[in-house]
Amino acid sequence: MGSVGAKDVPVLIGEDGRRIDGRRADELRPMKITAGALHQADGSAFVEWGMNKVMAAVYGPREVHPRHLQENNKAIVQCRYNMAAFSVDERKRPGLDRRSQEISKVIAEALESVVFAEEYPRTSIDVYIEVLQANAGTRCAGVVAASVALADAGIPMVDLLPSVAVGKVAGHIVLDLKKEEDNFGEADMPMALVPQSGRLVLLQMEGRLSKAEFATALDMGVAGCKTIYGTMKQALRDRYNVTGSDPTEAGQ
């Protein structure tokens, strides 16, 4: 952010080592996941993470449109990441842009690596990710929502896919950047992890980190993913323990 004068930069890390919202360096923002939030979709999830709100819907496996994308030996995973016009402070022009196309692609590839696509040849698994409110880390929230939605849709998977961003802010490596930290920080590195195997299926980076910093950041991110993994599993358990109140339940 070269154009921003030093005066405008908020104090990102206080003298007590606390961050702008009072978190420690390795602390996540509060997260809430609701599995099965939509009725029409085969699977869905709503993720509220800090000030992010992201909805994901999964359809399929179903017939591929357009036909020529179909693969004879496996299912394809198609993903559309989209930010609502009202999701950011200044109205975002609706529709596809370079950023959302890139994110759609990396998320689709990350998800494809965890689903057993060979079980449904010539079909498509369609994932729709809608960002309703954005506050940095929406692609991570999108991956989390999408993989819970895939599980909710009953699609066979290797594992759930927790995801988090790590970054460098005011010289410190911190976990799960929020908007100010992302805008004024030195580096931002989103990642997605397959917890059981420890494989990374999404790793991007903006800014610069030294080798040592990168190693620290990676460890911190992996630890963060493990925590999120627990939240995701709990969300799926909760989905099926809930029985809504019903008139006929009385006297049961």
């Binding site: 599980a151 009953g154 066979p156 998977m157 290797v158 059981q196 195997s197």
Partner: peptide, 12 residues
């Protein structure tokens, strides 16, 4: 995997 069984779908 590692002598353990993992489910590939959400279920009971």
């Amino acid at each position: 995997m590692g002598g353990r069984l993992y489910a590939s779908v959400l279920g009971l």
